[in-house]
Design a protein around this nucleic acid. Structure first.
Lengths: 319, 319
DNA sequence: CTGCAACATGGAAGATTATCTATAACTTGG
DNA sequence: CCAAGTTATAGATAATCTTCCATGTTGCAG
């Protein structure tokens, strides 16, 4: 039997005939003419190399070979019905994979969104890749992931962006710092202090440095530390001052004071970035939709900045 | 996804590509050109309505949808491999159904053949229908069965026949009957005795009556009994004489004597009959082949008359 | 025996498929 | 950045599949 030219259609017709017990009846049910069905049947029997049906008192019943083919056909067609269901759930975003690359700082807040999302879509397999801005950019260039979270998007020629969260950067000092009680502090007053900074690839550092440059200021002594955690603990231990995202601070932070520096907080926003040239998996789209609808329930109101509707509209229209 | 134009061939190609992780490599393995495979792939993806593969550092790996399709394809192709195996065993006669209609008398001896056959081919489902000649003829007319066993075949226009067993009919008398010791007995000497006869549809009775007619003789008092068993017991109990197939007598029969009537035994033969107009199932053909090869081991040599080779040759050539 | 319903066959048109060659576009490792 | 290898696209052709209509054949019921 040469399986090559076997069509699922042929199996559908065959199954219909076996069920109907009659070629004509099957033809009616399939909205085909009787000769069409007869011929398909013959072709199938030729492919199999055995008679499939025989007439038993006016009813067509499968032969031994026909019975086996019928069983196999039912299983096979059923299996492909399953595939259709699976695809439907993929398309609905209820299932699938979604890979997200995050800048370091965003890891403090994104779980608030992903927790409820995973609850709602347990069949979606979300993978997070966390790195500093430079590392995430590399992943973006290599098209490693479906979604990216940046403060400042890379060139928008290849990507679409949608803001979803405010990310205010503030100057923090150890509790009890002489300037901590002041109503207003000028940045210039702080330049003599030691600043704890993230490594050069970091977005927080980049933002802070370009802000300083705009102001025409430059820092005195600095100390480089590779993680926000380390910096926060360092500040609490009076190693120096730092600029951090507010999200890095725990809700209660008795060891650390935010200094009311004029011109701060530096306002930036996290955005979801998607590449224009890569088809977004349904699951990733589903995640964005979920974020658009449920962000308000997941994060504090003061950080909220939901502009995802625009991104979604753009994705819906031309992918 | 429109399943209608989905070919098994397409799935084979797809599976090969996923396994190879490369279109070109799959093309080489399939002895196709690379563009052919590319195009099939595109068609498949169109049918499914989702991208199936994506390039991950130079290797093509299935997407979520592609993975599901791959699993389904493997299952489906595997299932049809099973069908092929099943068909092969059908064709080899190792499996299947075989329905046989027997005349009554043959039931004493056919099991000797069917026992070893069923042992050798346990997957073949043999059905026996036992009746007198008339009943079996009716089944033959209606084409109810694959094989028929008759002493005298119906018109050979619609059937082929092959003898396989002698069926000698003898006159039996109770042990101690006055003629039981004689060297020779003439039928005419027995006409005054009461004869126990089978019912009119029976082959044994037909044969006996036509033999009597040839001799210009006719019976005296008769008694009709519907089974060979009943007649045998009747004779043993001195109810009268009878004509029976030798096969009906047990190997040892101390109560019954065979009378050496001149002109007897009436020689007849059992034959396998197959209709010309009905395709013989492989299993039935296998049974005939088995009979042809093993009959000698199954029945006593004196009954042997294996002319099945001719029948098989006829079947092999044009069915 | 006759007629109807069911099945098979033949012929034909249009769509789809399978496959090729040639060529362009892209990826990737050096 | 280039060269090699991989993938995609285009165009072509023969085979096949799908489906129809018209017309035989056959088997069962009256």
């Amino acid at each position: 039997m040469n399986i090559r030219h076997l069509t699922f259609r042929l199996l559908q017709v065959y199954v219909a005939v076996v069920r109907a017990g009659s070629v004509s009846e099957a033809a009616r049910r399939l909205h085909l003419t009787q000769p069409t069905v007869s011929q398909q049947l013959r072709r199938l029997a030729e492919t199999v190399g055995e008679p499939l049906l025989e007439s038993r008192q006016g009813r067509l019943v499968p032969t031994e070979a026909g019975g086996e083919l019928y069983r196999a056909s039912r299983e096979v067609l059923g299996r492909f019905d399953d595939v259709e269901g699976y695809l439907a759930s993929l398309r609905g975003g209820e299932r699938g994979r979604c890979s997200i690359a995050l800048v370091n700082t965003a890891q403090y807040v994104l779980p608030r969104l992903l927790g409820p999302y995973s609850q709602a879509f347990p069949e979606v397999d979300v993978t997070l890749h966390i790195g500093n801005r430079r590392q995430v950019l590399t992943r973006f260039e290599r098209q490693d992931d479906d979604l990216y979270v940046f403060s400042h998007p890379p060139s928008l020629a290849h990507a679409r962006a949608g803001r979803f969260l405010r990310n205010p950067l503030v100057v923090v000092a150890p509790q009890g710092h002489p300037l901590a009680g002041r109503e207003r502090v000028a940045m210039s007053e702080l330049l003599g202090e030691r600043f704890l900074l993230r490594e050069p690839g970091s977005a927080t550092r980049m933002l802070f440095e370009s802000w300083l440059q705009e102001q025409g200021l430059s820092l005195g002594p600095t100390l480089q530390m590779a993680s926000n955690e380390a910096i926060r603990v360092g500040v609490a231990s009076k190693m120096g001052l730092a600029v951090l995202s507010e999200h890095v601070l725990p809700p209660e932070h008795p060891d650390i004071a935010i200094l009311p520096v004029t011109g701060l907080p530096i306002e930036s926003h996290w955005q979801f970035i998607v590449r224009r040239d890569r088809r977004l998996p349904h699951a990733a789209l589903g995640l964005l939709r979920f974020a658009e609808g449920h962000l308000g329930e997941c994060v504090e109101a003061r950080f909220l900045c939901n502009e995802l509707a625009g991104l979604l509209a753009g994705l819906g229209s031309d992918p």
